[in-house]
Design a binder for these strands. Structure first.
Lengths: 305, 305
DNA sequence: ACTTTTATCTGACTATAGTCAGCAAATGAA
DNA sequence: TTCATTTGCTGACTATAGTCAGATAAAAGT
């Protein structure tokens, strides 16, 4: 990355926060603190559990409780205990709260219209397209990759989703018991590693390294959530696994994959993996790949797991 | 503008403010309130007049004074009276303030680098390009067009810049005394109109309408500041003038222009003006244009002057 | 039965970001 | 000269957005 790019990002930050700040104050802030407005918005028509609100808005539990109480006093929100877990609280909008939310939505629409209004049709299209690109890429940049315990909730959730997808996509389904293992203890250092990709606290991908012997590692469990595809997260996971492998002294990585997973094969080929003769008897595999690692990780990524 | 575009703008607003907010807090907010950091940044190495700071940051004079006092107490800023106007105060950074500013700049750079860091080279280029487009178009959307008194400071400044540019660009220079008049009283309702385009309080363009008789108007003084070109402000000024003209009951608009002003001619042709035989003896003109106004203004713009 | 964890609430406190009325000096126009 | 305006300062006030330590109670583990 260079000076020009950094300058451009800083400039964007400065200008856009200023413009958005002024507008969102004048539109959303009408009579209601922004935090309350956001909270109403986040509760939504269907209601939400308070713990979800806390993680989504990243609020202190005390602060959130106070905000909810304030909304309750204004008659906009009703709090009720969840049936299954009496500790958990669910917040729902009252009739009044729902009409308030509609007003907020209308104001937000007006705000957006005020941005688009002065522009020509052509400019509007270009602005919207660029906004979508910025949002997508800032989301991509916010994805974090970090090693995790294979038994942690995030790990289990992503592995479950991974198996589910294999079952859906393989022509004869998928049964983990018939496949070569990659059990939790095999993915825990020093036997191996599991890396999770997460975005805003939610796990959206995984990738594992199983150390076979002192020289050879196997890449397993490569998966990215459908909603996060196209952000190059597979590349980053793979690069991070290679960094892990190098750090562990490995010189060769191997992997096998099913013919249904076209995009995975593309990723491996792009990343310098060469197809080789089968090196195991994995029943679900149609292609086997191998890569010899250089002394240093490749340049594009700066992940340090 | 349609639902899809509005949704996209709202989504951008929500996501980007959240992401930028988190980051700018964690980077710029280290130990120093954001408003103080912004103020230091705005004062800059060369110092700045307090009144300029107030308009640029849109701060209450009391609040700004307090912020400056706080920075002064911390030994970062020195306040001194301006020589020419003893009411005005100039704020300058002390040695310590300058090194603090350098630290802030370094932190800002780190913040930008943290956004770009996880992305591939290709993604970085695309992000930066989209950011520039968003910024440019949001700036364009923030431009306001409004009628103004031809004697107001903004009007005089833009007319002066306009004459200056004509003088530079016309092959034989330009002398307003030899040209057909468009004096302040001719551009004041009901004799005519002067519209100013402004961005964040600064005047960046003008356009005038001189009403010749009850049916025919003349477009004069069309100018956009060089730094604001490419944002379709000329189009908006012209459309707004046409709206004015229609409201005043005019059915025909005329204008003349010099051959050096290629982009102006393009604008007029694009906007439906047809070249006609000379209708006056303006010595600096090479092309004469005319447009018959329909009963309603064209669609793209929503300016209502 | 017990400890630990999870989910929320409460009170007390702080920081940040303003707003507003009024004052005073300097300036500029009538 | 007079008087309105500009410019900045001060004190008093408010709103917003938190943070933190501890209380409480249900649920889950052991």
């Amino acid at each position: 990355m260079n000076r020009r790019q950094i300058k451009s990002v800083r400039r964007f930050n400065r200008e856009v926060t200023r413009r958005l700040g002024v507008l969102s104050n004048s539109f959303l802030g009408r009579g209601r603190p922004l935090s309350e407005a956001r909270l109403l918005y986040e509760i939504g028509i269907r209601g939400a559990e308070v713990r979800d609100l806390r993680t989504r808005l990243e609020l202190d539990s005390g602060y959130l409780s106070r905000l909810l109480r304030s909304l309750e006093r204004q008659g906009l929100v009703r709090r009720m205990q969840a049936r299954d877990d009496a500790r958990a609280t669910t917040a729902k909008l009252t009739q009044k709260g729902q009409s308030e939310l509609k007003t907020l939505n209308r104001l937000s629409d007006h705000y957006a219209a005020s941005v688009l209004g002065p522009l020509s049709q052509d400019q509007r299209e270009r602005l919207v397209a660029s906004m979508e690109e910025v949002e997508r890429l800032m989301r991509a940049a916010a994805v974090q990759i970090a090693p995790a315990d294979p038994r942690s909730p995030g790990a289990r959730a992503s592995l479950k989703a991974y198996f589910r997808e294999l079952k859906d996509r393989f022509e004869h389904g998928f049964d983990a018991r018939k496949s070569i293992t990659a059990d939790p203890e095999e993915l825990t250092p020093p036997n191996g590693y599991l890396l999770l990709a997460s975005l805003d606290g939610a796990t959206i991908g995984c990738g594992a390294l199983k150390i076979k012997d002192r020289r050879i590692g196997e890449v397993k469990r490569m998966w990215v959530a459908p909603e996060a595809r196209g952000l190059k997260i597979g590349e980053r996971l793979l690069t991070a696994l290679e960094t892990c492998a190098l750090a562990a002294g490995l010189r060769t990585l191997r992997l096998e994959t099913n013919r249904a997973l076209k995009e995975a094969q593309q990723l491996y080929r792009r990343s310098g993996y060469r197809e080789v003769a089968p090196f195991n008897t994995e029943p679900y595999a149609h292609h086997w790949f191998e890569k010899h690692l250089g002394p240093r990780p490749r340049k594009p990524s700066t992940d340090r797991p």
